[in-house]
């Protein structure tokens, strides 16, 4: 069967408020349903069990919010991007509202392969003062490696490689925020709360992490980091 022409629409969305408690699977299913409600002419995969042709960026864990997340959706017909965006916005719960939509070349690399850089903000409650937090983070960064144990597995991260930018601490009205950029690798990604949690633990401070938000997802190019 000849491949029909399809159009690859890249949609940016959020995972905000209460919806940060959803799993990646739950987010994917909810967005697929919003696409059907928007009545966009989505393409369907060939094969024994046909389904909507869509691809999502890197997963966000349960509890982590996202400001600029992405999915690609293949359409059978070209719907002007602003119209597609408006239809999606009308059919999506506010916490996952689409923020932008544009067509990308069919041959563009997949989101999951292209998006290797993630920026995060980790909120820390007022139980830990900003100065103490700065010192705690510095102490952890002084080591070259970070060992993380999760679900019975131990992972060792080379900090120079997973942290392409120096983390920084900002103080806000009700506590402080650790702003950090991580590089996601084939062997796994460093969870930002693991790094901050370790910093607090080593410094003997309370585990006062309040929120974790992925603020940006970026592609790494020779010239630096770029949004998809």
């Amino acid at each position: 069967m000849a491949e029909r022409t399809t159009f690859r629409l890249r949609v940016r969305f959020g995972k905000l408020g209460r919806l940060r408690h959803l799993s990646h699977l739950e987010v994917m299913r909810a967005l697929e349903r919003s696409i059907r409600r928007a009545d966009l002419p989505y393409a369907v995969t060939q094969g024994f069990s046909p389904h909507m042709k869509a691809a999502f960026g890197p997963a966000l864990p349960v509890g982590t919010a996202g400001l600029r997340e992405y999915y690609d959706l293949w359409l059978r017909e070209l719907v002007p991007a602003p119209e597609a965006l408006a239809r999606l916005a009308a059919a999506t719960p506010p916490g996952m509202a689409p923020g932008a939509a544009r067509y990308v070349p069919e041959k563009a690399p997949s989101l999951s392969a292209a998006l290797t850089i993630a920026r995060y903000e980790v909120g820390v409650g007022p139980a830990v003062g900003p100065e103490m937090l700065v010192r705690a983070v510095e102490d952890v960064l002084a080591e070259s490696e970070l060992t993380v144990k999760a679900k019975g597995k131990t992972k060792v991260f080379d900090l120079a490689s997973v942290l392409p930018e120096e983390p920084r601490v900002e103080s806000s009205g009700s506590g402080s925020t650790v702003v950090l950029t991580t590089r996601m690798g084939a062997t796994g990604s460093l969870r930002p709360e693991a790094l901050v949690g370790r910093a607090l633990e080593c410094a003997g401070l309370p585990h006062a992490i309040t929120t974790v938000t992925r603020t940006d997802l970026l592609m790494e190019t020779e010239g630096g980091f770029m949004r998809p």
Partner: peptide
């Protein structure tokens, strides 16, 4: 499974 307690569904 915190999704049990969120409300905010479509």
């Amino acid at each position: 499974r915190p999704a049990r307690y969120l409300d905010s569904e479509w």
